[in-house]
Amino acid sequence: MSALARQRQEVILERIRREGGVRVSELVDTLGVSDMTVRRDIAQLADRGLVVRVHGGATLSDAPHSSFEPAFRTKLGEEREEKLAIARAAAALVAPGSSVALSAGTTTLALAEELRDVEDLTVVTNSVPVADALFDPDRRDRTVVLTGGTRTPSDALVGPVAVQALRDLHVDLLFLGVHGFSERTGCTSPNMTEAATNRALIAAAGKTVVVADHTKLRLVGLATIVGLDDVDVLVCDHGLPEDDRAMLASHVGRLLVATPHGPTHHDGPREGHPGKEPVR
């Protein structure tokens, strides 16, 4: 291997370690070499077991593939305390009489359970567990709308039927669960069809609130749902490092860091945040 190739591969590996993944097109611009050269470097790193080649780029060898989608039951018990803290902080954003949308996910399911006491609530969701958690025939003041669609491993209903159901709806807030989020890729999903359905949820909402625990930072899924700059509020937990809090607060409208036993810490909003006003 030439010295130049070794230097390029060190740069590629360092970037993947720092960001969790990288695209070939970005490396072409960064390194000033051809697409073929970058792909050959990635292939050599993959042969050494240092990275995993994925469609359009590479991730760390010990990281899940960008298209890997864990089963809902698997995710349900992970970071349980953090998700409960996030759910309590997010629920505080919902006023009686609101209309809200909840995407699929274990964090949004925890939020659904926190919303049971909110009066006069209309909920739109593409999540079967969320709909089950909120449906109560004795609650005349609560309406739950479940989209149709094809069911995914995360118990989401996705695809053209779900998108069509959302097309003419308008809700005050969307609470969006994500597979991962990073400065480079924004909020991502391992399922392209679910990402498209989530974008339809965003289009139906006045404001978008992303709920995600700190372990999802720099986890990269196959498809981007929304960039960080277009997120009105990001609710994360106290495991988020201070440096990363500053980075995220510079992008999203408002960063809320939920603590397990105490008040929610508020960071932001970022000055000059474009688009919609952040939730307060």
Rank of each mutant, 00 (worst) to 15 (best):
S2Y: 00
A3M: 09
L4F: 05
Q7W: 00
Q7K: 00
Q7I: 09
R18G: 03
R18A: 14
E19W: 09
V22T: 15
V22P: 04
S25E: 02
E26H: 07
T30Q: 07
V33H: 08
S34Q: 09
D35P: 01
M36P: 04
M36I: 12
A43R: 11
R48N: 12
L50E: 08
V52N: 13
G56K: 02
A58S: 11
L60A: 15
A63I: 09
S66C: 13
F68D: 14
F68R: 10
F72A: 13
E79T: 07
I86C: 13
L93V: 14
G97T: 08
S103I: 09
T106P: 05
A110Y: 03
L121T: 02
L134G: 11
D136P: 03
R139Q: 13
V144L: 05
L146R: 14
L146S: 13
T147N: 03
T147Y: 06
T147C: 09
R151K: 09
L157K: 14
Q164H: 13
D168R: 14
H170E: 12
L176I: 05
G177K: 01
G180S: 05
F181G: 05
S189W: 05
S189R: 09
M192C: 10
G206M: 05
T208F: 10
T215N: 06
V226M: 07
L228K: 04
V235N: 08
C236Y: 04
H238G: 09
L248F: 10
H251C: 01
R254T: 13
L255K: 01
H261C: 07
H266D: 14
D267H: 14
D267F: 14
P269L: 12
R270E: 14
H273C: 01
G275W: 07
P278D: 11
